[in-house]
């Protein structure tokens, strides 16, 4: 299998003695939509910093599309597009200038750069901001500008560090659609995020990092399968009896028309519905009480602590 990113034994000890990465191993397949999750200070940004050369590693190897960064970093960088967490452009420059300069740093001629700018500004809804100075953009627009900038040299691997932080829901959804589109076109995407539902809905594979170590690295499907217990909120059509109970199921009455059901692994929610129906209680809607990935995330971090 060919990998977009291979990390082996990556270590980083900062000058103040802090060991941010303790020998992590990670592989991301080409074309993957990969989530790198972890609490603040876990080592996500340090990992990304090493990959894109903003952080000098202490030990280990990093290969981008098979190119070792120690052997040929410029070649590895060509494959990478990076959207950092913090805004890192000159706010006094116009949107167009920021993109032209970034293209120039990759050796892209002005004519080609302008064509790509047309494309990406249109796709990211920034066409009318082309000549606007970056400081006049809203937070969401600045994020989209950074995505356009990261794509201007058409990288095969796109790394996004908290790309939707501070972005409103509507814009976030538009951004998801755009990321899905470029992923479908073959770009490998590596995403760090605090919005776990974002990772769950977008990513196929996931690694969780904590205290500079990879806690788990698996497919999203496998990770969620490991969940032993889920809680559902059920809305009833009829008023619920005060002493409602169904043998074999743990139920909590929230109010007269709302019920909380805790479903263990192996239990069948359809059976619960059927038994409620037998007792004359119709369920008109049902939803998961909390984000499933969040549950898993917390449990994994607790195990590692």
């Amino acid at each position: 299998m060919s990998y977009a990113l291979e990390i082996e034994g990556l270590e980083k000890i900062y000058a103040n003695g802090l060991q941010a990465l303790k020998g992590i191993d990670l592989k991301v397949s080409q074309g993957d939509f990969f989530a790198l999750l972890g609490p603040n200070g876990a080592g996500k940004s340090t990992t990304i910093g090493v990959i894109c050369s903003l952080v000098n590693k202490t030990a280990g190897t990093v290969r981008v599309k098979g190119v070792d960064i120690d052997a040929d970093f410029p070649k590895a960088k060509r494959h990478l597009g990076v959207v950092p967490q913090e805004f890192n452009f000159n706010v006094f420059e116009s949107v167009e200038d920021i993109l032209i300069h970034q293209a120039g740093y990759y050796g892209i001629p002005l004519k080609t750069a302008r064509e790509r700018i047309d494309t990406y500004l249109a796709k990211l809804g920034l066409t009318d901001k082309r000549h606007t100075r970056a400081r006049m953009l809203s937070g969401g627009m600045k994020r989209r500008l950074m995505i356009a900038r990261a794509l201007i040299h058409e990288p095969s691997v796109l790394i996004l560090d908290e790309p939707t932080a501070g972005v409103d829901i509507e814009m976030r959804r538009a951004m998801y659609d755009f990321l899905k589109e470029i992923n479908a076109a073959g770009t490998t995407i590596i995403l760090t995020t605090h919005y776990l539902e974002e990772a769950e809905s977008l990513c196929r594979n996931i690694a969780i990092i904590n205290h500079g170590e990879i806690v788990t690295n698996t497919s999203m499907k496998n990770l969620l399968r490991e969940l032993h217990r889920e809680t559902f909120i059920l809305d009833a059509r009829e008023r619920l009896p005060e002493d409602l109970s169904v043998e074999g199921f743990e139920l909590t009455r929230v109010d007269d028309f709302c019920l909380q059901a805790h479903i263990e692994q192996g239990q069948d929610i359809a059976e619960l519905m059927s038994r409620l129906h037998d007792r004359g209680i119709g369920i008109i809607s049902m939803r998961n009480r909390e984000n499933r990935l969040e549950q898993m995330f917390v449990s994994l971090l607790e195990q590692g602590a």
Binding site: C52, S53, L54, F73, P74, K75, K77, R78, L80, V82, P84, E86, F87, N88, F89, N90, V91, I98, H101, Q102, Y105, Y106, G107, R149
Partner: peptide, 18 residues
């Protein structure tokens, strides 16, 4: 220094520009 201060120097550092 301005590029360092506003972090836009990173635009150059992540690029393959020698």
């Amino acid at each position: 220094f301005g590029s360092k201060f506003n972090n836009s120097i990173e635009e150059l550092l992540v690029s393959p520009t020698p």
